[in-house]
């Protein structure tokens, strides 16, 4: 009798302890889940709050359309940096996207066995190489290439640093990223698609072009959008290779400035002027909002794809 009550007491104690952990874990995990939302809100609100002084002083229109950037003279025109960012984004995506998609097609549809595993994992590993390494190799290899060969070939003059240089390097940075995501959406397609297309007499390339690319289209498109977001927010490579010149570039071989590189190049020395601080935080906010739009678009498209193919 006695022994039984003792176990009963011990049992109820254990149960109590287990339930206490259960309750505690509930609050902790709920907190962790909400942390993602809170972090995002905190970042947006902090940046927005700190941007108020500059937007109050100079109107939003002026900030976005003035080409004059000279914080010491109280001139804050973001247009040169915006134009530079758009230049770099469009150029590097124009170079990188076709190559990335073709390479993804090779990996998903042509490569087989060992080669496939090797090529795919090599590109996967490479997606994790730090940006500074690409910047450094850009300085060693791409800068002289652009300055000595590419610019003269186009009848232009360049010191090597500039928008084309950044675009070439960013194209290299962004391809592994687009390739991985595109391969993923191509391989997720059901094999029946390939079989029935080949079965009605299409060649392999016709199958890829008319069936697979169309079916995986939303997935690939969302990969491209995410790639846009990547290039848009890239910081270290532009800061190392763009030459740091806040004027609207006349030619793609000119030095320029992108929004992130503007933040990096101007923060150090100008932190003492409060309005400059605010202006650069405003640049960060712009980046966040635009990248957010890209990502949101990508998410929306991918969700449509999933609904269509149900995988």
């Amino acid at each position: 009798m006695d022994g039984q009550t003792e176990t009963e007491v011990a049992d109820s104690k254990t149960l109590e302890r287990r339930l206490r952990y259960e309750r505690l874990s509930r609050y902790w995990l709920l907190g962790a889940g909400l942390f993602a939302v809170a972090l995002f809100a905190l970042i947006v609100l902090t940046l927005a709050h700190r941007s108020i002084p500059i937007v109050a002083e100079h109107s939003l229109i002026e900030l976005l359309t003035s080409a004059n950037w000279d914080p010491a003279q109280n001139e804050f025109g973001f247009l040169p940096a915006i134009v530079g960012t758009i230049y770099v984004t469009i150029l590097s995506m124009a170079i990188g996207t076709p190559i990335a998609i073709l390479a993804a097609i090779y990996i998903a549809e042509y490569a087989q066995g060992r080669t496939k595993v090797l090529v795919a994992s090599f590109i996967d590993v490479l997606a994790a190489i730090p940006g500074v390494i690409f910047g450094l190799v850009g300085l060693i290899v791409v800068v002289p290439f652009v300055g000595d060969y590419l610019a003269p070939a186009f009848g232009s003059h360049s010191i090597g640093l500039g928008i084309v240089t950044v675009s070439l390097v960013m194209a290299i940075v962004v391809t592994p990223f687009i390739i991985s995501l595109s391969v993923e959406s191509l391989e997720a397609l059901p094999d029946e698609l390939r079989e029935s297309s080949l079965g009605v007499g299409a060649t392999k390339w016709e199958t890829i072009r008319t069936v697979l690319l169309r079916a995986a289209g939303p997935g690939i498109f969302s990969a491209i959008l995410l790639g846009f977001g990547r290039v848009f927010g890239a910081t270290i490579v532009p800061a190392m290779l763009i030459g740091g010149q806040t004027a609207i570039p006349d030619s793609p071989f000119d030095a320029g400035e992108t929004l992130p590189s503007l933040i990096v190049n101007d923060f150090g020395e100008l932190m003492s002027i409060p309005l400059t601080q605010s202006a650069l935080i405003f640049a960060g906010l712009m980046l966040l909002v635009i990248v957010w739009l890209f990502n949101f678009g990508a998410m929306f498209i991918r969700r449509r794809l999933q609904r269509r193919w149900q995988y």
Partner: peptide, 22 residues
């Protein structure tokens, strides 16, 4: 929550840097 995580995943690192600096 996943939606917010995705957005955070795509956020450029420089934004985090500016945020912490703020």
């Amino acid at each position: 929550i996943n939606m917010f995580l995705n957005v955070l995943w795509g956020t450029p690192p420089i934004v985090y840097g500016v945020f912490v600096l703020t």
